[in-house]
Design a protein around this nucleic acid. Structure first.
Lengths: 235, 235
DNA sequence: TATAATTTGTCCGTATGTATA
DNA sequence: TTATACATACGGACAAATTAT
């Protein structure tokens, strides 16, 4: 059962997406939302907080709650953890599996995933495509003690949906580290760039609620086409 | 007057920094904090929320509130908007001003800062150093209609502190966009790297509460030494 | 294994403060 | 100045997850 404030937040976001606030650029007031959804002020405020976090809404004390203008160039919002499939909505997402095997954890993996040496680990290396154009190169590791089974079919779809829907587990924390590096020959070929050109790297570490790491993923993006966005409120 | 939950959050963070929770890795319970600070449960929970956002604390339902292990390599936390000075604590921060002038906004600036053409704009180009070693190259623009005065002294210190303490204005939103690019000859020389090597770029757009942009800043970092971290809770 | 106690998560209601219009 | 609307803070009740018994 989904929490009420999350549910209401999603309802409001759907209304926003439908464009009903586009003209005024102003959402309903808290009191109006309270009546509309028959919830407490607390709940509405938590729902709005989520929209603020997602960079969608902007409450102004004494005035109202406004839409936040979208940025140009469509950078990847680091707050959006719903995966490529969701984020890229109307685009065609596919992937080519370059390698897939079960290996014992070496020192590097132990370090990255805080697991024991020789822990059985799925290694997945794939090229992800967007509208049939190379989009990013993934090197991903899954702790088999936590994710007991993976196969080609699962890998071809959304692994995160598999974890959520089939394993019934909840991903609670993701650390995302952004850096830059030079492209290897193989990576350059896959992305249609040249060796030693820059690459922008996103390293994701995914954890369950107690902080156990089930996945580490190193992704290489085309630096000419990819930016990452973090929106912050200091309030 | 600072909000109570922020104040309490800072007090708790100081206790964490002092190491008093290092042994158990477990903070006090909500009820214990309520007694200690004589505040409501709501206030304590908001204080803890801030610590969670900063990646410092990790509440576990039914169990307690735990310290979150620090990451290796000390990446720059994108949630930390307190500036270099705060973040790098015991290090020596300095800067070399490479250019500083008042210019009318051109089309590029208009686009980035959503201002009118020819708006008077301070342009600041500086090299920031950490322990006397080149750390990043900044190209920064300030809307003079919003930041009416800047001089060398202010620029040499923390501009953000000047805005907070002297102009008495509150920075409410910062959009941070991370990308990669190739270094220009000038940038490479300044950072001790070679032309066309990768650079990791952080573009900051800073806004006051109503969303008006007062600053756009393009920063070039040494890709060998700099990473950016985003910690996310899906809960 | 089952139950109770502990602890955080969600939700409600109310009152007051502060910024905006 | 007044009314509107969001921000802060308090209190209580119950649910859900974990831990101890």
């Amino acid at each position: 059962m989904e929490a009420k404030f999350k549910h209401v937040s999603n309802l409001i976001e759907k209304d926003i997406a439908s464009g009903i606030y586009d003209e005024t650029q102003k959402l309903l007031t808290e009191d109006e939302f309270i009546i509309k959804y028959k919830v407490s002020r607390n709940t509405i405020r938590r729902a709005i907080d989520l929209l603020v976090k997602r960079g969608v809404a902007l409450p102004v004390q004494g005035s109202g709650i406004y839409l936040r203008k979208k940025r140009l160039g469509q950078p990847i919002n680091l707050e959006n953890l719903r995966g490529l499939t969701y984020y890229l909505g109307d685009h065609n997402v596919s992937s080519v599996i370059l390698d897939f095997k079960l290996i014992p954890a070496d020192n590097k993996i132990v370090d990255l995933m805080h697991c024991e040496l020789d822990t059985p680990t799925y290694y997945v290396h794939r090229l992800r495509k967007l509208d049939n154009k190379p989009y990013c190169i993934e090197y991903s590791y899954y702790n088999k003690d936590l994710i007991p089974y993976l196969d080609n079919e699962i890998i071809n779809g959304s692994i995160y949906n598999y974890i959520r829907n089939d394993l019934k587990k909840t991903i609670n924390f993701i650390d995302e580290v952004i850096s830059a590096n030079v492209l290897t020959k193989e990576e350059a070929d896959l992305l249609g760039l040249k060796e030693n050109e820059p690459a922008i790297i996103c390293e994701n570490t995914s954890m369950f609620k107690t902080g156990t790491i089930f996945n580490y993923c190193y992704s290489v993006f085309n630096y000419k086409e990819t930016k990452f966005l973090k929106m912050t409120n200091t309030a």
